[in-house]
Design a protein around this nucleic acid. Structure first.
Lengths: 191, 191
DNA sequence: CCAGTCATGACACGTCATGTCATGACTATG
DNA sequence: CATAGTCATGACATGACGTGTCATGACTGG
C-alpha cells in the first residue's frame, strides 16, 4: 500500500472537504487540494476520477452490499418487509464508520454545491438499481421491483436527512421505521 | 428575437442530439456542435450553461408550472388525490410538444451517458422540491409533503419510462394511474 | 438618418482531466 | 547483499470545457 507517506487518499479527502467548506467547491482548485495534501495534481486524478469524487470514495461498493443483503435474506419476506427488517439495520452500520460530525460537514459541503448534489443523486440511483435487481432475483415482478426499490431509497434518503437534522437523536433504524410508517399512511386509501 | 439566421438555439439542440447519438456525448466537442449549426463555440455557451444543458432547455420552468398547478387546485384534495387528478393530466400535455420519436431519441442519448443521467436526476429533484413546497403551502405537514412529493415524482418517472418503453401505447395519464395503483398496492399492509 | 440594443464573432485565459514517460522506494528472489 | 520487478508518485504535454471582454453589424425606434 503506502510507500512514501501513507494515506495519500485520506489526506486528499480531508484537504478537499476542508477547502470546500472554507472556500466553496467551485472556488477550490485541484492544485490547492493537492498542495495542502503534499501531492501533485496528477496524483489527485489517479485516486479520484474527478473533483467531486473525492467526497464519494468507497461508495461504489454500496450496490454490491445491497445485493448481498437481499440474496441472504429469508425468501419469505416481501419487498416492504425486506426494507423494514433487512435494509434499515444494515444501513445504520454504514454510518457508524465516520462520526456524526464528519457526516454533517460532508452534507454541508454537498448541499452548498449543485454539482455535488447531482453526484449524491446518482449514488442513490445506483442504490435503487441494485435493490431493483435484488427484488427481481427474488421473483418480484418488474414494476413492483422498480417501485419498491425507489420507495425504499426514498424512505432511506428522507430518513437520513431527518436523522442528521436532529443530530442523530432517534437512531437511524428508528427514523427509517418512522419514515416508512409515514409512507404507508400517506398511500393508504383514506389519506 | 432572431436577427441573423433565426433559431440558433434550436439548431444547436438538433445538432447536439444528432452528434450525441452518432458519436456519443463525450466524443462530441462543442466546436463540432457549433460547426454543424453554423455558429461559434462562444455562442453555444451563451445559450446553454454547459454541454449537457443543450438537452434540457426549457425544463427550468417545470417547477413554476408545478407550483401554479398546486396553487390552483381545489383545496379539499389531499396529496395523493392531487397527484392522480391534477398532475397526471398536466404532465401529459408537456409531452405533446415534441413527438414521441424525439422523446425516444433524447432518452437514448441520455441513457447512454452517465453525466446526462445525472442531469436528468437533478431535473426530477427540482420537480420534487417544487411539489414539496406546494404541498406545504396547502397546509400539509413537512414529512408528508416531502414524501408525497418524492413518491409523486417517482411514480411519474417510472410511468414515463414504461410509457416510452411501450411506444406511447396506453397514454401517459393512464400509465401514471396504473403506476400509482401499483404503489398503493405495494405499500398496503398485506403486500 | 442616427442612436441604441443585442445576438453573435473573435480572442485570451484558467481549470479540468488524461496520456505518457521518468523516478525512486519497496519487495522478492538468489 | 545484489539485482530485477512492481507500483505509487512526479513531471510534462495536451485538449476540451467554460468564462471574461471587446468588437461588429443587423435590426429598431425616433
Amino acid at each position: 500500500m503506502g510507500r512514501w507517506q501513507p494515506g495519500a487518499r485520506e489526506r486528499l479527502e480531508r484537504a478537499a472537504l476542508d477547502l470546500f467548506l472554507d472556500q466553496g467547491f467551485t472556488e477550490t482548485t485541484v492544485p490547492q487540494i493537492t498542495a495542502r495534501a503534499g501531492l501533485t495534481t496528477r496524483t489527485f486524478f489517479r485516486h479520484f476520477a474527478d473533483k467531486r469524487e473525492v467526497l464519494f470514495a468507497g461508495e461504489h461498493l454500496v450496490p454490491e452490499q445491497v445485493a448481498r443483503l437481499l440474496a441472504e435474506a429469508p425468501p419469505s419476506l416481501g419487498p416492504m418487509d425486506l426494507i423494514t427488517e433487512g435494509l434499515a439495520p444494515a444501513a445504520a452500520e454504514v454510518f457508524q464508520g465516520r462520526g456524526l460530525d464528519h457526516l454533517l460537514r460532508r452534507r454541508a459541503a454537498i448541499d452548498a454545491e449543485p454539482a455535488l448534489r447531482e453526484r449524491e443523486l446518482r449514488k442513490y440511483s445506483l442504490m435503487s438499481e441494485a435493490l431493483e435487481k435484488g427484488f427481481r432475483d427474488r421473483g418480484v415482478d418488474d414494476l413492483t421491483a422498480r417501485l419498491a426499490a425507489e420507495i425504499a431509497v426514498t424512505a432511506f434518503r428522507v430518513a437520513v436527512t431527518r436523522w442528521l437534522d436532529r443530530n442523530g437523536d432517534p437512531d437511524l433504524p428508528t427514523t427509517i421505521g418512522q419514515t416508512l410508517a409515514a409512507v404507508r399512511h400517506l398511500t393508504s386509501p383514506q389519506a
